[in-house]
Amino acid sequence: MFGANVVTADQYIAIVLPARMFKSAFASLGFCPIVLSRAVGATATPTSAIVPWNSCGAYMAATLGVGTFHYAPYALFSFMSPLVVIALAFLNIRMPRRPASAAQR
């Protein structure tokens, strides 16, 4: 999702595009839709503020009057949120699955 922020230069597209792309993959693995929602929300949303040419990064830099690379080291949430989601997925924590009958539809 961070890559989508870099390529698309807009947070909204970086949220919607990967969510649509991975919807069927998450469903075929039997995960509840909330897992995809958490993955997209925790990766695409906070990382958009640290991409200088992204609309969020440009807005933050203009509003704060500080370049993106200057405040990026202090944006711990932007870096930690994706790492926490990856760790939770790797450890299979809070990864609800659909019932078997719903996954086959």
Rank of each mutant, 00 (worst) to 15 (best):
Gly3Glu: 02
Gly3Leu: 01
Gly3Pro: 02
Ala4Leu: 09
Ala4Glu: 04
Val6Pro: 04
Val6Ile: 15
Val7Leu: 05
Val7Ser: 01
Thr8Trp: 03
Asp10Ile: 14
Tyr12His: 00
Ile13Arg: 01
Ile15Ser: 00
Val16Lys: 07
Leu17Asp: 03
Pro18Lys: 01
Ala19Leu: 08
Arg20Cys: 03
Arg20Asn: 00
Phe22Glu: 07
Ser24Val: 05
Ser24Pro: 02
Ala25Trp: 08
Phe26Trp: 03
Phe26Met: 01
Ala27Met: 06
Ser28Pro: 04
Leu29Cys: 10
Leu29Asp: 07
Phe31Asn: 06
Pro33His: 01
Pro33Ile: 02
Val35Gln: 02
Val35His: 05
Leu36Ala: 00
Leu36Cys: 01
Ser37Tyr: 03
Ser37Pro: 06
Ser37Ile: 04
Arg38Pro: 02
Val40Gln: 05
Pro46Val: 06
Pro46Ala: 03
Thr47Pro: 03
Thr47Glu: 05
Ser48Val: 04
Val51Ala: 08
Pro52Gly: 07
Cys56Glu: 13
Gly57Glu: 00
Ala58Thr: 14
Ala58Met: 09
Tyr59His: 14
Ala61Val: 09
Ala62Asn: 08
Val66Arg: 04
Gly67Ser: 10
Gly67Cys: 07
Phe69Gln: 11
His70Trp: 11
His70Pro: 11
Ala72Trp: 14
Pro73Gly: 08
Tyr74Lys: 03
Tyr74Gln: 07
Tyr74Asp: 06
Ala75Lys: 07
Ala75Ile: 04
Ala75Trp: 03
Phe77Gln: 06
Phe77Leu: 10
Phe77Asp: 00
Phe77Arg: 11
Ser78Met: 09
Ser78Tyr: 05
Phe79Ile: 07
Met80Trp: 15
Leu83Asp: 04
Val85Ser: 05
Ile86His: 07
Ile86Glu: 03
Ala89Phe: 10
Ala89His: 12
Phe90Glu: 15
Phe90Ala: 13
Asn92Val: 13
Asn92His: 13
Asn92Gly: 15
Ile93Asn: 10
Met95Glu: 11
Arg97Pro: 14
Arg97Ile: 13
Arg98Asp: 00
Pro99Leu: 13
Ala102Pro: 13
Ala103Asn: 14
Arg105Tyr: 14
Arg105Lys: 11
